[in-house]
Amino acid sequence: MITRGFTGRNSGGDQSDRIPPGQHLVEHFPVLTAGPTPRVETADWKFTLKIGPRHIKVWNWSAFNALPKTKMTRDIHCVTSWSKLNTAWEGVVVDDILADAGVEPPTDFVLAHCYDGYSTNVPLADLASGKTMIALNYEGQPLPRDHGGPARLLVPHLYFWKSAKWVNGLQFTERDEAGFWELRGYHKYGDPWREQRYTND
């Protein structure tokens, strides 16, 4: 349905092939969080890999920073409809975390956990594809607290709620368990190109 009198600011923009349906381009970096912004000191920071309830390996900040670092520049898409192009990240690719722990993935499903109690599910096939990382730097600087610092998950090809802020662990689960927003009406997978915003989209 055409809205009477609406023309739109980005109508006919030349980057439209990089902007998924229903999204609009922003230059700034909006912040959306469901609770207070946690304060996590790197001295206290820990990252835990689990299989079900079982701890496989725990890294502190310096051990985690000794893992191989990778840089990625990606477009990101938030379910609240903004997209931001060419965001530059540096961190540890999930495959390198699994390799350092020496685990063969026991299931196809993973939950990411965070300092504020947040969680989100991402299938192993998406996580361990070289496409995702635990990001420690943004645009060449330590990741700001508002954007999830010291460390956040980066899953740029899914809606950005999957890129969990203040991440402190990954957990293999038997089944595809819903995380925080997935339990509260949002889509279980969240592909922006298929506009999977809400449950049953």
């Binding site: 349905m1 055409i2 809205t3 609406f6 023309t7 739109g8 600011r9 980005n10 109508s11 006919g12 349906p21 229903g22 999204q23 609009h24 609240t80 409809s81 915003r197």
Partner: peptide
């Protein structure tokens, strides 16, 4: 709610 506006050329803007 999410509101969506559509321009004559099909461009869509959505906001909450």
């Amino acid at each position: 709610v999410d509101v969506r506006l559509t321009a004559p050329d099909g461009y869509v803007a959505m906001r909450s």
